[in-house]
Amino acid sequence: MDDLKKFIWNMPKAELHLHIEGSLEPELMFALARRNKVEIPFATVEEVRDAYQFSNLQDFLDIYYQGMSVLLEEQDFYDLTFAYLTKMHEQNVIHVEIFFDPQGHTDRGITFATVIAGITRALSDGLEKYGITSNLIMSFLRHLSEDAAFATLAEALPYRDRIIAVGLDSSEMGHPPSKFARVFEKAKAEGFLAVAHAGEEGPPEYVCEALDLLKVDRLDHGNRALEDAALVMRLAESQIALTVCPLSNYKLAGVTDMRAHPIKKMLELGLKATVNSDDPAYFGGYMNENFEAITESLNLTKEEILNLARNGFEASFCSDTEKQAMISRLEAYGA
Rank of each mutant, 00 (worst) to 15 (best):
M1F: 07
D3N: 10
W9T: 10
N10F: 07
A14I: 07
A14R: 03
H17P: 11
H17M: 08
L18E: 09
H19Q: 12
L28E: 07
R35D: 10
I40K: 00
I40Q: 02
F42Q: 06
A43I: 09
T44M: 12
F60Y: 14
I63E: 11
Y64W: 09
L71Q: 04
E73C: 00
D76Y: 03
F77R: 06
Y78N: 07
L80Y: 10
L80A: 04
A83P: 09
E90I: 15
E90R: 14
Q91W: 12
F100A: 03
Q103R: 02
G104F: 11
T111R: 00
T111N: 08
F112Y: 12
T114S: 12
G126D: 12
E128K: 13
K129I: 13
T133P: 11
L136Q: 06
F140Y: 11
L141H: 05
L144E: 15
Y159V: 08
D161P: 00
D161G: 03
A165I: 00
L168E: 07
L168K: 00
E172F: 03
M173D: 15
P177S: 12
S178Y: 14
K179E: 14
A181F: 08
R182H: 14
E185R: 04
A187P: 08
K188D: 00
K188P: 06
F192D: 01
A196V: 05
E201K: 02
P204K: 13
P204Q: 09
C208R: 15
L213A: 07
L214Y: 09
H221I: 08
G222T: 03
N223D: 15
L226K: 01
A230S: 13
L231P: 01
V232L: 10
M233S: 14
L235G: 04
L242Y: 01
T243L: 10
V244L: 13
V244M: 13
P246K: 02
L247H: 04
K251Y: 05
G254R: 01
V255Y: 10
V255R: 04
T256P: 10
D257K: 06
R259W: 12
A260T: 09
P262G: 03
L267M: 15
E268P: 02
L269R: 13
N276A: 11
D279C: 12
F283R: 07
Y286A: 01
Y286T: 03
M287A: 12
N290P: 06
N290K: 00
E292T: 03
L300V: 01
L300W: 10
T301A: 14
L308K: 00
R310C: 03
F313M: 11
C318L: 14
C318N: 08
T321W: 11
Q324I: 02
I327W: 08
